[in-house]
Amino acid sequence: MRGAVGGGSRARQNAMRSGLVVLGAAAFGYLSFRVGFKPYLDRAQEAMDTTHGSAATDSASGGAQPGHAGEEDNVATSKDPAVVLRD
């Protein structure tokens, strides 16, 4: 009888230990990805910020976008890809 009760407890301990190892590996992988690709992610973020910043400046100053001469721009500035791709 004692072996059956102890076996269930041991199985639970092993399952919890395995779960902890998996969570630790996932966290380590995520942090490794962030640290390893940080320069590329920073450059991409900077490029997106400058692109969106210049578009906001153009629309605020009333400048016409290339290919849209004389058209009124009714689309609000958005980071939504669907709005950007629609034009």
Rank of each mutant, 00 (worst) to 15 (best):
Arg2Trp: 02
Ala4Tyr: 03
Val5Asp: 13
Gly6Ile: 14
Gly7Thr: 08
Gly7Tyr: 11
Gly8Thr: 02
Ala15Phe: 04
Met16Phe: 06
Gly19Trp: 04
Gly19Met: 00
Val22Ser: 06
Gly24Thr: 09
Ala26Phe: 07
Phe28Gly: 12
Gly29Ile: 00
Leu31Asn: 07
Leu31Gln: 08
Ser32Asp: 03
Phe33Ser: 05
Val35Asp: 13
Val35Glu: 14
Phe37Gln: 14
Lys38Gln: 11
Lys38Cys: 00
Leu41Trp: 10
Asp42Gly: 01
Arg43His: 09
Ala44Val: 09
Ala47Met: 09
Ala47Ile: 00
Met48Lys: 07
His52Pro: 04
Gly53Val: 04
Ser54Gly: 00
Ala55Gly: 01
Ala55Asp: 08
Ala56Gln: 12
Ser59Tyr: 05
Ala60His: 05
Ser61Gly: 05
Ala64Gln: 06
Ala64Met: 03
Pro66Asn: 12
Gly67Tyr: 02
Ala69Tyr: 13
Ala69Asn: 06
Gly70Ala: 03
Glu72Val: 13
Asn74Val: 14
Asn74Asp: 13
Asn74Met: 11
Ala76Trp: 02
Ala76Ser: 09
Ala76Glu: 09
Thr77Val: 15
Lys79Glu: 11
Lys79Tyr: 14
Asp80Lys: 00
Pro81Arg: 07
Ala82Pro: 02
Val83Gln: 06
Val83Tyr: 05
Val84Lys: 09
Arg86Glu: 10
